[in-house]
Amino acid sequence: ASQRTARGVGLAANQIGVGLKVFVYDCPDDKGVRHVGAVCNPRLVDTPDDTRTEEGNEGCLSVPSAYARLSRAYRTEVTGQDLRGNPVKVWGTGLFARCLQHETDHLNGRLYIDRLSAEAREDALRQMAESEPAFPVVPND
């Protein structure tokens, strides 16, 4: 519900104060196919060195109103468990691959701005400071 309300394509549990290693997604791939689901205890599968990368605009509900260009693997795979504890393997291309990488990063304590150059990170933080978030920030009590 939090992801849909914020009109995001993915959301990690720790973004909303839930201490579980799980993320949800509702995201199209590069062919427009919609992928909906959840991954518990996700692990990015190492990709070969020759994997194509794609630079794209990236934003985050944890860094509201800020966007920056960031290079990510064009295709990626995540393993983990589904909501019932069964093994799951999810792979995606394009925006969906970016989503899988972005949400797994969250669960490993990393924001997309941590992957930016110092100058680009400063610009993203400036954007956030100068903008009004689309949604009110609600403290977790």
Rank of each mutant, 00 (worst) to 15 (best):
A1R: 14
T5Q: 11
G8T: 03
G8A: 14
N14R: 08
I16R: 13
I16M: 14
G19N: 15
G19W: 11
L20H: 12
K21V: 12
K21E: 14
H35R: 06
V36F: 13
V36K: 14
G37T: 12
V39K: 00
C40D: 06
P42F: 07
P42I: 06
T47P: 04
T47L: 14
P48K: 06
P48M: 09
D49G: 10
R52K: 09
E54F: 06
V63N: 06
V63M: 07
P64M: 04
S65A: 15
Y67P: 02
Y67H: 07
R69D: 11
L70E: 02
A73S: 10
Y74F: 12
E77D: 08
T79C: 09
Q81K: 11
D82W: 00
N86V: 05
V90G: 02
W91R: 13
G92L: 00
T93E: 15
L95E: 08
A97N: 00
R98Y: 00
C99I: 05
L100Q: 00
E103T: 04
E103H: 02
D105I: 09
Y112L: 10
D114H: 12
R115L: 15
L116I: 05
S117T: 15
A118L: 13
A118T: 13
E119P: 02
A120G: 01
R121N: 03
E122Y: 01
E122P: 01
Q127F: 13
Q127L: 13
E130Y: 10
S131R: 10
E132R: 15
A134N: 12
A134F: 12
N140G: 04
